[in-house]
Computed example of a mutant assay.
Amino acid sequence: MSEKKKALIAMSGGVDSSVAAYLMTSKGYDCMGCTMRLYENDMIGEDLFGTCCSLNDTQDARSVCDKIGIDYNIYHYEAEFRDKVIEPFVCSYEMGETPNPCIRCNKYLKFDTLYQKGREMGYDVIVTGHYARIEERGGHFYLLKAKNLAKDQSYVLYDLTEEQLAHTAFPLGEYTKDEVREIADSQGFVTSHKKESQDICFVPDGDYAGMIKRYRGKDYPKGNFVDRDGNILGTHDGIIGYTIGQRRGLGIPAEKRLYVTKLDVPNNQVILGDNEDLFKRELTIRDFHWITGEKPTSEFRCLAKIRYRHKEQPCTVTPTSDGGALVVFDEPQRAATPGQSCVLYDGDIVLGGGIISNS
């Protein structure tokens, strides 16, 4: 009789990872659940109650593991999370960008630090509650969108490699959220009707600027709102508080709606303009990651999305010699934001992605 395969389940204390653990045990895997402790409250200046590192969440994760009869552990990765996620997050805002820390957390924590720990402990696969799919075709492993496109999270997973995909499982990729809750309810999990978190885990109140000020222990200098001709329109409260496409909270009396169209960090200016000024066809992408590891040698056609909730759009991609890419959309796209990721798709397959640069 062959030995059971082993699965290490990353559990946040929510319904998705709870059901992921249950599904893997149902498939006959020898499973262990674990929660990654990523930060202490003094790192973010917030009470941890209600965040993914709260005592309540770890208790809920442990309760689910007890219910399905698997072991559970907590692993401390506070230092790694500070260096790989929080510090780059803060630096990105200081550079006039709008980062996506979930992508870095997946890349450096779940599918690097935890992945390596799991492999060292003899686990065959790392499992998360992401809504995405992995398929092997012709000896290659591909990342695909979830069957339920409304919950698809493939966008935040584009930095995975084929080797990582070969030792990863996303058991929720075939399910809808309602189906996941029904499974949790049928098993009597305490997480079955738990509310989903909509904010970044270490910014539970959604106040990114406030978190950055607390983290750095300083305020950021006020500066000028200007129009595209350089005319001063008012005073902003610190450049870290603004992002491309923002309209609300500007406090500028005007006869027409104004939007943030650019952040000029060297001059500490926030440039405002019309909605039409937010549209562009060409994007420069840096740090491009190709999932197969094989960089294309010439331009090609595909679909691309420029933010998590963006509908992917047809474009032409030209790889560049510096490890980036030039993406030219068929139609202008609104509010392409430096710091966010541009992710490429061939149908359901994720080809890779990179970071949108200032231009």
Rank of each mutant, 00 (worst) to 15 (best):
E162R: 08
A166H: 05
G210A: 07
G14V: 00
G118C: 08
P204D: 06
L344E: 01
F300R: 01
V127P: 00
L144W: 06
D57E: 14
L278S: 03
I126P: 00
Y208Q: 14
D287R: 08
V327L: 09
G241K: 10
C315P: 03
K117Q: 11
Y123R: 01
P101R: 03
I355C: 09
P204G: 02
M43P: 09
D178V: 12
Y115G: 02
D274T: 15
S321K: 15
C201H: 06
G339K: 02
Y77V: 06
T113I: 15
K117C: 06
G206H: 05
E174D: 13
G238H: 11
G210F: 10
D16K: 07
L233R: 02
A209Q: 14
G352C: 03
Y77S: 03
Y22H: 15
F300C: 10
K67L: 05
G251F: 04
V64T: 10
N224V: 03
A304Q: 06
Y242L: 09
L48Q: 05
S359N: 11
V327T: 09
R181P: 08
R181Y: 05
D71G: 14
K4H: 08
D287S: 11
L233D: 04
K256A: 12
I74Y: 01
K67I: 04
A61D: 09
I9M: 04
H289W: 13
G188R: 07
G245A: 13
E3F: 12
L55Y: 06
D227I: 12
S2Q: 14
L172S: 00
C65S: 09
K107Y: 08
G33L: 00
T292N: 13
N148F: 00
V226A: 04
T320F: 01
N267V: 00
S186C: 08
Y131R: 08
R214K: 15
N73A: 15
A20F: 02
T284F: 11
K147E: 14
E120D: 15
F141P: 01
E163F: 09
T235D: 07
R334S: 10
T337C: 15
K195P: 02
D322T: 04
L149G: 09
L109H: 10
M1W: 07
G139H: 04
L258H: 03
S2V: 12
P204C: 03
L109E: 09
P314L: 01
G210S: 08
L172H: 02
D42A: 07
Y108W: 15
K107L: 11
E174G: 05
G28S: 10
G122K: 06
K311V: 12
Y208H: 14
V125E: 01
